[in-house]
Every structure is written in C-alpha cells, then in structure tokens.
C-alpha cells in the first residue's frame, strides 16, 4: 500500500461520518427531485390526454370526469408530485441567486408556503369535484 500524502482535514469526524456535506441534508434533495421527475413522465403524458378529454366541457362534466376514482387518483398524484418537484426546483434556483443568508431563508420559506397553499387548494378542489360534484 502506497503511503498517502499528509492531508489536513478540517471537517469534524462526526460530519464526515454523517456525509451530509455543505447542503446539510446529503443527497436527499437531489434524490427527491429525480424520483419526482421520473413519476412526472407518465403523469404528464396522462394529463395531456386528460386535457383533450376535458376541452370544451363545462364544470359539471369535469366534475363527472373527476368523480371517476382512477381519474381522481391520478389527478391528486399529479398535483402532489408536481408541487413537490416544483418546490425542490425553485429552492435550488433561489439558493443559487440569493446570497444573503437571511433573505435566502425568508424567500425559500415564503416559496414553500405559497407552493403548499397552491397544492392544498388544488387538492381541495379535486376532492370537492370528486365527492360533491
């Protein structure tokens, strides 16, 4: 075994064992972004077909379409995965361009809050259409 050059490692041993790096959450964010993108491939294709189905329909016809359990399930899945993927992506964009720590934290939290509210509004709308009509 060759002798390795002397290195000064300035990270604590605990930090090295955790392996979370400067992002503080390891690869969780990266993985979640990829996993949601894979799920969005079939969901997006389904949604395009769904838009064709609903083009020109009134609210009552759309409620009837959403009331089908398969459509409601896929629509809710699309909403959950889309907004999750969107929050992950926008967070990276914000972190890249806002260098002030406090502003960055504030904008990320605001974005997450708005995204969560949009997702909840969409879910409530789908549930109401599916159950009540």
């Amino acid at each position: 075994m060759s002798k390795s050059p002397k290195q000064t490692i300035m990270r604590s041993t605990l930090s090295q064992v955790r392996g979370s790096g400067s992002a503080k959450s390891g690869t969780a964010h990266w993985w979640a972004e990829r996993a949601t993108s894979v799920a969005l491939v079939p969901l997006t294709l389904w949604f395009i077909l769904a838009i064709y189905r609903m083009a020109g329909l009134g609210a009552a016809d759309i409620a009837h379409w959403v009331s089908h359990p398969v459509n409601a399930t896929l629509l809710l899945a699309l909403i959950l995965v889309t907004f999750h993927h969107m929050a992950l992506g926008l967070q990276v964009v914000i972190e890249d361009y806002i260098h002030n720590d406090r502003t960055r934290l504030g904008v990320v939290l605001l974005m997450k809050g708005v995204t969560a509210l949009l997702a909840i509004a969409a879910i409530i709308a789908v549930l109401k259409l599916a159950v009540i009509g």
């Binding site: 609210a59 969409a122 709308a125 259409l129």
Partner: peptide, 29 residues
Amino acid sequence: HRITGCALAVGTLVLVWWLVAAATSDVAF
C-alpha cells in the same frame, strides 16, 4: 431548463385557478 422550470411553476397558477373555479361555480368556471 431552469427558465422553463420557473415558467411551469407560474403555469401551475392557471391549473389551480382552473380547478378551484370548476369546484366553485359555473360562473367562476
């Protein structure tokens, strides 16, 4: 890729508006 991602995020506002309107009333829709 980044610009279209941000544009699609704005686009979700239309999706939410459309769904909420459909669930609210015929007038809103």
